[in-house]
Design a protein around this nucleic acid. Structure first.
Lengths: 227, 227
DNA sequence: AAGTGGTCTAGACCACGAC
DNA sequence: TCGTGGTCTAGACCACTTC
């Protein structure tokens, strides 16, 4: 009887309505006695169930079956290169333009900047087998990554560069559908107004804004996840 | 020194390049001695780091700092009603049509069905403050949920009904951008061809296909997540 | 074959928070 | 206040996988 068996058994009994939604489960000591194992083993099983969103646990309050199990999807966000190569395609990269500039107003407000802080603006394209796959429009805050002012993005994309430079940052991601504007349409070799999958990501590190990026995916792109 | 402190300290030292990407970390026994705690405590800390995608662990191989930390986003998938009410809007629901039918070929192949199994087809709309928010086009496999043949979806949407009926199912979700067809455009009161955020979800329970649903979100919709 | 992580145990103390 | 989960310990055995 490993903790996984205990977890599975409890889960099975929850599904079988042995404990109804909202109902209180027996305490850990009681369950340990029932399963004939140590309390630590039951504890591990219950923590796993809690992480899976099946039950809720509170000190003194005990463990309860969640009324509405919260479905959670886990997306793995790979680097574009890995994503393309995983499809069995050849990865290609092309730098379109790069410039040093002051942060435009919309970026200032997005990053709560006081003024037009110095930023590096990079536009580039990622290809799968010579077909445009993703159009990347990125702004990097030089106050957070001064090194980015002189980085050469000709051969290595700014996403991979940043991943190496600032590996452990926090981010907010927004996905939406977006009608291709003239620029994006030309870059991705499609018609203006065609629906594109858009991902916008803002990244922070130690409370300091690092980068904001707009990723436009060529038509046909799907983001897949399981749970 | 709780396991969180151990975890944070190890993480800090990884960020500080004390152990470079790909490098092997000391063994648990060694770390436990260094931290002056039991091996179980170090083990817990290391497991947490592993779950966070910071390190990789293998028996005999030891623990290594990941070369490219795999970023994971956790989306919570709420019921539409909760999603709309969380925005401070009033939730509205309208059943458009429902019918019993045989599964069309595309659905058969998607669900690996042998023939035109009996399904319930439901179309409905979800409103936020009387504005169309989401158009739902759903197929329910009656072999998996016979009860669904007679369920009344006039006041309770099929999503919430299914969540109560088959709470613990597996699913695959696909997100993409989709040009509004004539039907969707009319339902959502927008123009044909406008980009819509599309979510397609296939659901299984005990290996049996339960439901397939296409969710079309009105323009302006964004799916947000943080990590 | 041997080293490393995975897990279990029995007992203990503590922190939170419901009652 | 006091029951419940959260966590630590010291020791043990086992399973995987690399060497």
């Amino acid at each position: 009887m490993g903790y996984r068996d205990v977890k599975d058994d409890i889960f099975r009994r929850i599904r079988a309505q042995e404990w109804a939604p909202g109902e209180r489960l027996p305490g850990e000591v009681q369950l340990a006695a029932a399963f004939g194992c140590a309390r630590a083993t039951v504890n591990r099983a219950m923590q796993a169930l809690s992480e899976d969103g099946i039950i809720e646990r509170r000190r003194k309050g005990g463990s309860h079956v969640k009324l509405m199990p919260v479905r959670q999807i886990k997306f793995k966000i790979p680097v574009v290169r890995a994503e393309i190569e995983a499809k069995g395609a050849r990865y290609g990269y092309k730098l379109i333009s790069t410039a040093l500039a002051g942060a435009p107003r919309w970026l200032q407000s997005k990053f709560s900047l006081a003024g037009p802080a110095a930023v590096r603006h990079v536009k580039c394209l990622h290809f799968a087998d010579d077909t445009p796959y993703q159009y990347e429009d990125r702004w990097i805050n030089l106050a957070a990554v001064p090194h980015a002012a002189t980085a050469d993005f000709a051969s290595l994309g700014p996403n991979e560069w940043l991943l190496r430079e600032v590996p452990y940052s926090n981010a907010e991601v927004r996905f939406s559908a977006f009608p291709a504007d003239a620029v994006a349409a030309r870059r991705l070799a499609i018609g203006t107004g065609e629906p594109l999958f858009l991902a916008e990501r803002s990244t922070w590190h130690n409370g300091l804004p690092v980068t904001f990026v707009r990723l436009l995916f060529a038509p046909g792109y799907q983001m897949v996840a399981r749970y």
